Amino acid sequence: MALELFAGIPVADYAAALEWYERLLGSPPTFVASDTEVVWELAEHRYVFIEHRPEHAGHAMHTIFVDDFDALVARIADRGLEPADRETYSNGVRKAIYRDPEGNEIGFGGAPL
């Protein structure tokens, strides 16, 4: 079975969100879906998108697992963003949580050291 994932993030201030997510994800969007929606392809068939939907803004919660957690968090810091929170679970898995200006949560998880 083929699988594609589109994880949506509703925003109220589209222009500010676009700039913030470009900093977080390290690139401009992969494509523009419409006047109110842009999409980043994080890996083959795995996408994150922001969409201007003010009535739902601030309620997204997504976690993305990456191979090199420390390198990713360092690259994001180089672009001027720091995690709002960090967690380490009992099994050693680590998570860096970022919150956009509207409160949407994007976490990056990584394997134990």
Rank of each mutant, 00 (worst) to 15 (best):
A60K: 08
A57L: 01
T36G: 06
I50N: 03
F65A: 12
H45Y: 07
P54Y: 00
V48L: 15
H56L: 14
F49W: 08
E44T: 01
P54V: 00
S34D: 15
H59G: 08
I50T: 05
E41G: 04
V66P: 14
E41M: 05
F49P: 02
A33F: 15
H45C: 02
W40D: 07
W40M: 02
V38I: 03
F65C: 04
Y47W: 10
H56Q: 13
D68I: 01
Y47M: 07
V39L: 11
S34Q: 14
Y47C: 03
F65W: 07
D68T: 01
H56S: 13
E55R: 05
A60M: 03
E44C: 01
A33R: 11
L42K: 00
P54L: 00
D68Y: 03
F49R: 10
A60F: 00
D67M: 04
F69I: 00
T63K: 12
L42S: 01
V38M: 00
D35A: 12
R53E: 13
G58Y: 00
D70Y: 05
E37A: 12
A33H: 12
D68P: 10
I50S: 02
I50C: 00
P54G: 06
V66L: 13
E55L: 02
S34V: 02
G58V: 09
W40Y: 10
S34N: 03
R46S: 09
I64M: 11
H56R: 12
I64G: 11
A60L: 02
E37W: 11
D70G: 06
E41D: 01
E55W: 08
H59M: 08
H62A: 12
G58W: 09
T63M: 14
